[in-house]
Write a protein that binds this DNA or RNA. Structure first.
Lengths: 344, 344
DNA sequence: TCTCCGACTTGGATCGATCAAGAGGGGGAT
DNA sequence: ATCCCCCTCTTGATCGATCCAAGTCGGAGA
């Protein structure tokens, strides 16, 4: 039953419903929040009144009384220009969907000042505007997690606490090493033996993790990895240069990359030399970005199960917000491989 | 001054601040909301107390009293898989930033049921959870705008009311025709005369608008357009097929496309024939997606000024929410052209 | 000296829902 | 018949900020 009232007039309140149904306010409140407490006929009467009036509880009033907003704060980090990293888009959508199905909404905010990673969180926390946060940028030792822990703010991280194994907060992450191992094995199964790695600089925990998956797969088949790895910045041009050097010095037949951005750099380098990628040399990226999907022929890429991540994150949040709080351990999910022509 | 209290304990209230500063509650409230009413020294004293206690007004209480949430509702539509449409990401970021700078936050929600375009809006509206909406999907005659107007819900649309020129609601849009005209003129200036168009099916207002820009530029130089246009679905494969047909039947030397997705299809078709794109045949896309940015060589593309769009949207919203409401007319912004190798 | 005004204070009511007790009635046990 | 309990529903207080109306006080201007 759609609400046909007008916004400019005051919407019906709980008291209005109570009067109409001939019961008390509390009974209406219970009808909404604890229907099992009412006698079936009373419940039906109240529900009729609710739908006749088009009543919906006022969020602000409820928030005030219950000290909960049913809002989840998320700092929105846009994709960088000139890269292929597009995980945020898919992730946010999944999160909004799962949160919505559990009665939560997602509140976005931007870091007020780029220098202070904690601003933004602080404001919302103090104003009790959100119930909890989801923290996404846990690469390198970033201060959010520690700060939020210290503030006793409920939060779940998408990403492991790399820099602090003793951290006790809840987290959900995707097993990057498993992803690159999957990719490498896929190439090994195709007969490749000289598989190169292009990843991020050594201070990136995520980058080293992904690299480890590649190395693990290679060593499992007694293949050498020395001279086959390169660590650069996450830009197309870096990937291109790295690929060029590797082609000259190690003549690999395949590349596994820490990101689609780097993989695009490899494609670029191959194009420079007139090498037909996919046929002559195989390439695998990471993130299954739109770029991987639409580049002519398609780029094989490791795909993170972001829908699952969202589900686990919300599940963990609900645990934290329940009374008493239930702090689950970290959750590590496995990625899959989207195979396309670049490795076919 | 960071707040050092704990979330589990009750945060300081306005009354606490009042006591500490030795003034009344009303004065603290004024210090926060109408500082010009206070004598400078009193104001300073109150502000000291505020920062010492780490006070921040309770959002729920304020929302309840003032009947405003300072939240803007936005339905989050993720990019479709397999396309290059990534405008949402950049747009959302801009919106979050501008909204934040004006004291607003962005609340995301998903359409509960895909069939009912209006669900989601309804829930939030009835619960007075948001002050206003930003509506983004105004292509084809979609019911949101009309429905929201009827509900007297404040909203601003990103996108013109194509299907209803008499619509009176506020909107902000980007002049797509101007964008394709820019693109076409760019190619004309490079010496091309046989410039083909690949756009969307005729029932897409946006598609027809963009097509009009191409046609306008061509006609302005007395060049024919017949046989040079194709209208297909917005997928890479459609673009590829359309390009293939056009190459056979009209032998164009350049392509202007309604989207980067279609442009990628063109690149694909050119690759199939071993045609060196950018040198032999020029291609221009639309949206300046990540794909356009990282595809080897780079794809020239029309770029929407999404930062400006966000600013105008928020400005319009503030007008709507002020008392009395000020309904500005529609705002039409001009896109720019990001020139890359595909047209160089 | 009287008046006026700016800069507060005071005490209350209010927003709308929920919490914490309490009241009434019927059934079962004693 | 009496007591007790539980189920169902009611009542008054409460969350924290803002709105409102009236009152106080000191200093500047007439």
């Amino acid at each position: 039953m759609a609400w046909t009232g007008r916004l400019s007039l005051t919407p019906p309140t709980l008291a209005d419903v109570a009067e109409r149904a001939g019961v008390s306010r509390q009974t209406v409140s219970n009808a909404v929040n604890n229907p099992e407490l009412l006698r079936p006929d009373t419940l039906a009467r109240v529900q009729d009144a609710i739908s006749e009036l088009g009543y919906s509880p006022n969020r602000a009033a409820r928030n005030l009384r219950t000290r909960a907003s049913h809002l989840i704060g998320l700092k929105f980090n846009p994709a960088q220009e000139g890269t292929a990293n597009a995980a945020m888009d898919r992730f946010v959508h999944s999160l909004v969907e799962t949160a919505g199905s559990r009665g939560y909404h997602v509140l976005l905010f931007a870091g007020s000042s780029p220098t202070d990673a904690v601003s933004g969180y602080d404001d919302l926390l103090r104003a009790t505007a959100v119930d909890a946060f989801i923290v996404t940028d846990t690469y390198l030792g970033n201060p959010q997690a520690a700060w939020l822990t210290q503030q006793r703010a409920p939060f779940v991280a998408f990403g492991r606490p790399w820099d602090n194994p003793e951290a006790t907060h809840a987290w959900v992450d995707v097993d990057g090493a498993a992803g690159t191992e999957l990719a490498t094995n896929h190439l090994l199964d195709k007969g490749h033996t000289r598989i190169a790695w292009i990843g991020w600089r050594k201070d990136s925990f995520i980058g080293e993790d992904r690299r480890a998956g590649w190395a693990r797969a290679m060593h499992a088949r007694d293949l050498p990895t020395t001279g086959l790895a390169s660590r650069v910045e996450d830009t197309v041009s870096s990937g291109r240069e790295a690929a060029s050097v590797l082609l000259d010095e190690a003549s690999p037949t395949a590349f596994v990359c820490a990101s689609d951005t780097l993989a695009m750099g490899v494609l670029h380098a191959l194009g420079d030399r007139g090498i037909h990628w996919g046929r002559d040399i195989a390439v695998v990226g990471f993130d299954d970005s739109q770029v991987a999907q639409v580049v002519p022929g398609g780029l094989t890429s490791v795909r993170q199960p972001l829908e699952q991540v969202a589900v686990e994150l919300v599940k963990a949040l609900e645990g934290l917000l329940s009374t008493p709080p239930v702090a689950g351990p970290g959750v590590l999910l496995s990625p899959t491989l989207a195979v396309r022509m670049s490795s076919g």
